[in-house]
Amino acid sequence: MSGTAETLLEVRNLSRHFGAHQVLGDVSFDLRRGEILGLLGPNGSGKSTVLNIVSGFLAANGGSIGLNGRPIVNAGPENVTAAGLVRTFQLPSMPRRMTVREVVQAGDATTATLASATRPLRFDNEVDELIAAFNLGPVAGLPASSLSGGQKKLLSVAVALRCRPRILCLDEPTAGVHPNLRAEMVRILRRYNAEGVAMLVVEHDMLFIRDLCHRCVVLDRGEIIADCAPASLEDNPRVVEAYLGKAVEKGKLAS
């Protein structure tokens, strides 16, 4: 698992403890260019901790993270985003006194300088393109907090893409989302993936994972127990025991 030219994100020997509680032992994995990587595991296995450290919101106790060969561990979220990695949140909370369109525009931090105050506020074409791509056109003028839970998830992904990331980290993008919207989400994410955005997806929905991900890493109690294609997850007895559950028999997920 050594980093190659194909490696975009290189996570090595990541560890983190909260007090005496070791949440991450020694986590290493790669995300390759153009890849969609699923990060799976039972509750408390350390998925969110990995995501928080990778996105710069949490400091690691040990280990390194390279983005395109550049170290980003403990760099702070704004610097990680500037380096090309942006994340969404499991429960996207949206502003009450900003419209959807304003929030998408605000996703571009690079032009939000003091000097921008010398010019009238203009929205980029990309804002309307993203709003159209995520079917948010009818609600674009509404306060962002007034959207439904599913629409907020779509908006949070749209805003994250506004940063023009090389890597998009998604924290449970379909939790609490209607199946129709979930299919829509897969379609949209595939489209941006085809345009070159690599993704790291934390998710519990196995159908979503199978539809979207090229590869999966499974965490259990802070250790990686599997690194394989989604289709071979159920062949791995450790994954079945720790995550999928013993009741899942071979072939059942495919149905």
């Binding site: 996105s55 985003t81 942006v86 949140f89 304003e102 605000a106 994250a160």
Partner: peptide
């Protein structure tokens, strides 16, 4: 817009850079 985003959702503002 950045001021308002920081006012209401500082965590989101940081995540967006």
């Amino acid at each position: 817009l950045a001021m308002k985003l920081m006012r209401e959702e500082p965590q989101l503002a940081r995540a967006l850079g």
